[in-house]
Design a protein around this nucleic acid. Structure first.
Length: 495
RNA sequence: GGCGACGUAGCCAAGUGGUUAAGGCGGAGGUCUGCAAAACCUCUAUUCGGCGGUUCGAAUCCGCCCGUCGCCUCCA
């Protein structure tokens, strides 16, 4: 497949260094707040990349870190009066729950900065020994001038960056762009012993130490959001290649475009975040994934409720074509041309909009073939497989019925009044089976019962009553679809 | 100020030199249905922000202009 490489700024044929195993390191989160939809976009993108590489036959080794010690965590923990590690643990749990809910495959290893202090210190020592880093005032800094290609990922030069730089002046730094590898301990902060005194790792260094520990000195793919290109990934390259002697730290750099909320970027400092939990309250995981995959992973995308609504409906379109079995023994439809289209899209730098178009084309053809009496069983299998490459489950939406019991009771009495005294024996019998007292909660069984009553109404051509039942169900968020084989209902939350 | 991305139908979004400009949502009409829904069919951009240029040929390449956004500071 072809993949865009931020380092070279072009699309290249992808192949792992050793022929089969793909070493993929994806930058994880700093766990100090709820997982938001921007995170979800990024990890859906890399999950999709991983699934596709596995489909191509590669053995993907996926490592993703937690930077579980950092100013933000420490500050937030202090505000809440709890220990930083307790806070981090809480949001790491939140992260796992969220990823699972979105059907994002778990990485093989999730190293945490605080559990890798040894390798971090070793890496820093190596950098000091080779002249790439120097201690100063309890901290240790990376010497950017030592790396003549510093800036190659973000395509900047030291001079260009200093022009508009908003960097704090630090007396201990030799060069304003030098960055901290080890932060000397301050009172009340977590710290570890080191050759330079007690302290904690700086940002960047944990990724170098952890990726090398779990994947070796050269990665095939290093991924993250575009906001990490500078300074995070630039600095990772600098320190990693300085420590290994210029071996390429990562052969491909893959970055996803950022999710925006309305007109603005969604970011922690702006505070305009939508948590994944909120999104999942209103939309199915499939709809959220489809929304992210409907635009190319490198393009920015605006998160809107309207967009999610539209994607929920398109998810329904896919679910519908998988819902019914084929009842015919006509010729089986061959899904191969659509599958080929899908794959050619995915091969082209993960062009998921193109792949999705192939899925929708396939669905339309399946519906046509089924209408013509042909079997679509094989095509349904194909659609499920293509969907699974995108992490789609095609599961029906969760049905947390929130039906008003009072209104239900009123409807039942009304039906009873209208039916009693008629000679529609079947109907009279059905309604007599309905619990006569008022109920407090409406369950799926109650809905099933109403559906049966409505079916009987239709048998007796009592369409007014049948339509009244359907209208009431609709008002409660329950959609009814009649077909030759009976009626099915589904719940869609009413807003 | 430096670096970069983008501007395609009512909305979202592929396409980046050459047959009728994908797909989704929405809308209009039709088929099916007791009526709906779902599904299917037809229609919904003679044109790709604007103006020039290169070319036999441009949404696609070049220049300028207008507009939107990102990074340069914590961020997926």
């Amino acid at each position: 497949m072809k993949l865009y490489n931020t380092l070279t700024r072009d699309v290249q044929d992808f192949a792992p260094a050793d022929g089969n195993t793909v070493k993929m390191y994806v930058c994880g989160v700093t766990p100090y707040s709820s997982t938001h939809v921007g995170h979800a976009l990024s990890y859906v993108a890399f999950d999709t990349l991983r699934r596709y590489l596995e489909f191509l036959g590669f053995n993907v080794r996926h490592v993703q870190n937690f930077t579980d010690v950092d100013d933000k965590i420490i500050n937030r923990a202090q505000e809440q009066g709890i220990e930083p590690d307790v806070l981090a643990e809480e949001f790491i749990d939140d992260f796992y729950r969220t990823m699972d809910a979105l059907n994002i495959k778990r990485a093989h290893v999730y190293p945490r900065a605080t559990q890798e202090i040894g390798p971090i210190i070793e890496t820093i020592q190596k950098l000091i020994d080779s002249g790439s880093a120097y201690p100063g005032g309890g901290d240790v800094f990376f010497r950017v001038t030592q790396k003549d290609d510093y800036g190659k990922l973000s395509h900047r030069t030291l001079d260009g960056m200093q022009a508009g730089a908003r960097i704090e002046v630090d007396e201990n730094k030799e060069h304003p762009m030098d960055f901290v590898l080890w932060k000397g301990a301050r009172a009340g902060e977590p710290s570890w012993e080191s050759p330079w005194g007690p302290g904690r790792p700086g940002w960047h260094i944990e990724c170098t130490a952890m990726s090398m520990t779990y994947l070796g000195e050269t990665l095939d793919i290093h991924g993250g959001g575009q906001d990490l290109i500078f300074p995070h990934h630039e600095n990772e390259i600098a320190q990693s290649e300085a420590s290994t002697g210029q071996k390429p730290f990562s052969r491909y750099w893959v970055h996803n475009g950022l999710l925006q909320l309305g007109a603005d970027k969604m970011s922690k400092s702006l505070g305009n975040l939508v948590s994944v939990e909120e999104a999942l309250d209103n939309y199915s995981p499939d709809a959220i994934r489809l929304y992210f995959l409907s635009s190319h992973y490198r393009s920015p995308l605006s998160y809107t409720d309207e967009g999610c609504d539209a994607m929920e409906r398109s998810a329904d379109r896919l679910r519908n074509v998988l819902r019914e079995e084929t009842h015919s023994n006509g010729v089986g439809m061959d899904p191969t041309p659509f599958r080929d289209q899908f794959i050619s899209g995915m091969d082209d730098d993960l062009n998921t909009p193109k792949a999705l178009a192939a899925m929708f084309d396939l669905s339309r053809e399946m519906n046509r073939q089924r209408d013509d009496g042909n079997s679509i069983t094989k095509a349904q299998e194909c659609l499920r497989q293509l969907g699974s490459l995108l992490g789609l489950t095609f599961k029906e939406r969760e049905t947390h019925l929130k039906v008003d019991a009072e209104s239900y009771n009123a409807l039942v009495s009304k039906i009873r009044d209208q039916v009693s005294g008629t000679d529609h024996a079947g109907l009279v019998e059905l309604i007599s089976n309905v619990y006569t007292e008022s109920i407090k909660t409406v369950f799926a069984e109650n809905i099933d019962q109403l559906i049966s009553i409505r079916a009987e109404c239709r048998n007796y051509k009592q369409y007014v009553l049948a339509d009244e039942i359907r209208a009431w169900l609709d008002s409660q968020g329950v959609s009814v679809e009649d077909s030759a084989s009976g009626s099915i209902w589904s719940y869609r939350p009413v807003s």
